[in-house]
Design a protein around this nucleic acid. Structure first.
Length: 237
DNA sequence: GCGACAG
DNA sequence: ATCTTGTCGC
């Protein structure tokens, strides 16, 4: 039997390769639905989800913050930490961040009706970004809102808040480039699961009240920052 | 072979 | 993603 030294053992699961992850995405991508949410007026609780890493880069921090409509008031949140199990590889982000995000979702008391995710939805090489992956796994409607581009091309939208352009991959629409604040760099928005392109843009614009990112995602970011500040990864618990 | 590349 | 304070501009 082979012996593994601690020094050569990677800090993530070596039994799941990038090649296998890609195959898994191809399988699950078939479960993604782009049908618009049947009853958008029934959406009462919108949650922002985020994942970050501790300073020592050994643990992932998953956070979820729930906002209630119509006033966008924060009503619930949860956070948890887990060991890093997969490296960051463009196109395979969900395999690194999803586990800890799912655990944080389980610890939530409120069941969200819609999830806003920090990353791409179908604006992905295999149409299966982290927002789509989370949607298929949770069964909930999801929208991807990324701060930068992964794939596809789109023209620059007008400078006023609310303006947007379609993001294309060849002749296929994969998302939208949306200006959430006047004069500020736009965000890449794409359906994750169970929402249409139109609804995705509407929800992002409606929840981005004062900053570039939608309030729920921004809140999830800040919660992660505060958690990192306290439990910066200098101890294992 | 070369460039691109969510967080 | 993370390392990081002040600073330029509306």
């Amino acid at each position: 039997m082979k012996k593994k030294s601690a020094r050569t053992t990677p800090p993530y699961r070596a039994d799941f390769s990038a090649r296998e992850a890609i195959e898994r995405q191809k399988e699950l991508a078939g479960d993604v639905s782009l049908q618009p949410t049947a009853t958008p007026n029934a959406v009462r609780h919108i949650a922002g989800v985020d994942a970050s890493i501790t300073r020592d880069q050994k643990q992932m921090i998953g956070t979820v913050v729930v906002f209630a409509l119509p006033d966008l008031v924060e009503i619930d949140s949860s956070h948890t930490m887990q060991p890093v199990v997969f490296p960051y590889i463009p196109g395979l982000l969900s395999f690194r961040e999803l586990p800890v995000v799912l655990e944080a979702l389980r610890q939530l008391e409120t069941e969200p009706d819609l999830l806003l995710v920090d990353g791409q939805g179908i604006a992905h090489p295999r149409r299966f970004g982290i927002a789509s992956h989370l949607g298929v796994v949770s069964g909930l409607p999801t929208i991807g809102c990324a701060k930068s581009r992964l794939t596809g091309t789109c023209d620059e939208p007008g400078m006023a808040k609310g303006e947007w352009t379609m993001c294309m991959d060849g002749s296929e629409r994969i998302g939208s480039l949306v200006r959430t604040r006047s004069g500020v760099k736009p965000v890449w928005v794409s359906p994750g699961h169970r929402v249409s392109h139109e609804q995705a843009v509407d929800w992002i614009l409606r929840t981005a009240t004062r900053y570039r990112l939608p309030d729920p995602i921004r809140a999830a970011h800040q919660l992660a920052s505060s958690v990192r500040k306290q439990r910066g990864g200098y101890q294992a618990t």
